[in-house]
């Protein structure tokens, strides 16, 4: 396994770049971080629509969330990949497709996390804000959302973790990420897929493990800050 790594580490790290598109671990991280960063504002909007919106808006947001969560991500990726060009009138690349699919998918999952964060805020916080003359929007943006986000920060990291793993589905649309790199190495070595995939698992483990560690640290930090 060490010999596979020493021969192929570069393709695992950055894919075919610069002789081809950037890929490998680098693309996995880029896709996960970008899609989560784009999904978060969307998730906030959905969560707010569900908790603060008029009944009709709340219902629409809930239907969106339920719908997205009922579809397997793989289906979703395929659907975006082949339907988006028809809707947009021009083809979009594998990476853009994967990010778009993940943004929609993650926003619905993240919105549930944020919603839980919002609902966990004691009523007193909002009653206090109202009685102090704050209007609806400042209450939401300065009192409710910051607290909801702070409370859900560790869960958000966990979600980043699962997003990293979900990017591996991108290889079905040949977006050049980590799993695709492993498939390419497989094609060169031919007879050692078991070792290649073990190596792949080890890389994912290190990446996700360090994210979990970060989440743990963040939680500790958070508690300490509250206590000081």
């Amino acid at each position: 396994m060490i010999d596979i790594l020493s021969d192929h580490w570069l393709i695992l790290l950055i894919g075919q770049y610069p002789h081809g598109p950037l890929g490998g671990l680098a693309m996995t991280v880029i896709m996960a971080v970008t899609s989560l960063a784009l999904a978060l504002p969307l998730a906030l909007a959905i969560a707010v629509a569900r908790t603060e919106g008029t009944p009709r808006i709340a219902r629409a947001a809930q239907i969106f969330v339920d719908l997205v969560r009922a579809i397997p991500l793989l289906m979703f990726v395929f659907w975006v990949y082949f339907a988006a060009p028809v809707l947009l009138g021009r083809p979009i690349g594998g990476v853009a497709t994967m990010i778009a699919a993940l943004v929609i998918y993650e926003s619905s999952y993240l919105s549930e996390i944020v919603r839980a964060g919002i609902e966990a805020i004691p009523d007193g916080q909002i009653e206090a804000a109202r009685s102090l003359g704050l209007r609806r929007w400042p209450i939401l943006s300065r009192v409710v959302l910051p607290q909801a986000l702070q409370a859900s920060a560790p869960s958000l990291i966990v979600q980043l973790n699962s997003t990293v793993k979900e990017t591996s589905l991108a290889f079905v649309i040949s977006a050049p990420e980590l799993t695709f790199s492993a498939t390419q190495i497989n094609a060169v070595l031919m007879t050692r897929p078991l070792k290649v995939f073990a190596l792949l698992a080890a890389v994912y483990f290190c990446l996700c493990g360090s994210l979990s560690l970060a989440a743990g640290l963040m939680e500790t930090q958070f508690r300490r800050r509250r206590a000081n």
Binding site: P122, G124, A128, A129, L132, Q147
Partner: peptide, 20 residues
Amino acid sequence: LDRLRRRVGFVFQSIDLFRH
């Protein structure tokens, strides 16, 4: 409502400072 509440300060028994 917001004008009224700026003219009338309110302090609760439960002391709801914004926690963040």
